[in-house]
Amino acid sequence: MSAAPSPALPALSVEGLRVAYGDVEVVRGVDLVVRPGEKVGVVGESGCGKSTVALALMGLLAAGGSVTGGAVTVSGSRVDYHDERALDRMRGSQLSLVFQDPLTSLDPVKSIGSQIAEALRRHSPRMSRAAVRARCAELLTAVGVPEPERRLRQYPHEFSGGMRQRALIAVAVANDPAVLIADEPTTALDVTTQAQVVDLLDSLVDGLGVAVVLVTHDIGLVSEFCDRVLVMYAGRVVEEVPSDVLFGGAAHPYTRALLESLPVPGRPRGEDLAWIPGAPPPLSALPPGCSFAPRCAWAQPECSVGTPPRVVVSEPSVAALGTALHTAECRRALEVPRG
């Protein structure tokens, strides 16, 4: 494990991140601070910009996309998204990525071993062959793949979905990164396999002190796995809330509406689920004022004018050491009934 950074220094700090594809701004000023060993969730529905944030942080936006604003700092050093060589040095060593679909995230014609080794060699070019091999086996063991020596020689098609995701996690933690960005890491997996993989991520956070940014559409998953949750809508973080108060105490009308649409265990059967009328606005033609206002049950005329204020819903308690700030970007955040 790398030298433990001082607790005051965040592993990842993002201020006002903006991303555009052509003329359309798809991420419109996102702030995010992750401390070492912390697990932060980013949730939202398709098209809200959550996956774009993940790729933008890695500097791996698809062709046509670019970071148009904001400052990103990893372990205290500022990231320059125009310096490709510096980005290459950062990727995999300080920031690493676990990607959505384990079936398509591994090169089908290279052995598992060579794909893990690639990550090691890139950042430790002088490592001997034997050392690389030994380390690869060690990594596979660490992510819970049995018989690592044999498994290293195998190819992705010889691995099950859950095992592939474990191998990808091994790739991601190979160089002890400060932050692991996991973009829908369990969405393609069965629920029992998902439970195993989440358990593995949890143990890696405990063991390595790596910080995790979990990007997902699954509110149940973030609220269980993460310490803090950021809810995104139309390219903005509309609410930032500690997980333990998410279900009882969400303040933004969008978050509340999302939660009410969930068939959570224990909700009386026969009771109809609520849903949000309409559809998210196209990012190329956002409504004036709050983007959610046209669908919001709490909207007032002034919601369609000007940027909604960021309201502090509850100050962090002393015990939480400043990690549990709860804010919502809504004029009426304190009026929406909670709990």
């Binding site: 629920v191 029992t192 998902q194 439970a195 195993q196 989440v198 358990d199 699954d218 509110i219 149940g220 998953l221 609220s223 269980e224 796995f225 997980s243 333990d244 998410l246 279900f247 009882g248 959570v264 265990p265 224990g266």
Partner: peptide
């Protein structure tokens, strides 16, 4: 299967069975 489904913090009613 039931225990594996993610459950919001504080609402978990059963221990996870791996």
């Amino acid at each position: 299967l039931l225990s594996a489904a993610p459950q919001p913090r504080g609402t978990r009613q059963r221990e996870r069975v791996l």
